[in-house]
């Protein structure tokens, strides 16, 4: 007679399926592919990440020793992290917050050879 009744009753006696999002957030999963970070002191500016990136969102400038990443062109596939030989690239488990304007993340790289 009331086919939906068992599901309705279960919903009444179980906890909420949703959460009040901005104030309440969930713990991120450990291996989530979130924001891309580059460790400026480890990077050797080899440029492999820029070549491998399918969305071409990384620019490596060897002259000015900068590593630039466009978070709005990035598709968060993690190919650059997998191909990074020095391990300076990593993805945080947190996603980037919503932004009001376009920006390009630029990291100044200090090469070890130069400091010698």
């Amino acid at each position: 007679m009331f086919p939906m009744m068992p599901a309705i009753l279960r919903n009444f006696f179980s906890k909420r399926a949703t959460r009040r999002y901005p104030p309440m957030t969930r713990e991120p999963f450990a291996e989530v592919r979130g924001e891309l970070k580059n460790e400026g002191s480890v990077c050797t500016l080899c440029g492999v990440c820029a070549v491998k990136c399918p969305s071409q969102c990384i620019v490596v400038d060897k002259k000015n020793a900068t590593w630039q990443w466009d978070p709005f062109a990035c598709v968060y596939c993690g190919v650059c992290v997998d191909s990074c030989k020095t391990g300076s690239l990593r993805q945080e488990p947190l996603y980037r917050k919503a932004a009001t304007g376009r920006e390009i993340v630029s990291v100044k790289i200090v090469l070890k050879e130069q400091t010698k």
């Binding site: 939906m4 599901a7 399926a17 999963f29 450990a30 291996e31 989530v32 592919r33 598709v75 968060y76 596939c77 993690g78 993805q91």
Partner: peptide
């Protein structure tokens, strides 16, 4: 019924996020 199914779907989406790192395009 639509909401019920999508509530169940959320569990599978979370599984994808936890195992592959991305919710939709698991890559």
């Amino acid at each position: 019924l639509f909401m019920q199914f999508w509530k169940i779907r959320e569990k599978v989406m979370d599984l994808q996020e936890a195992t592959a790192g991305n919710r939709v395009i698991v890559s």
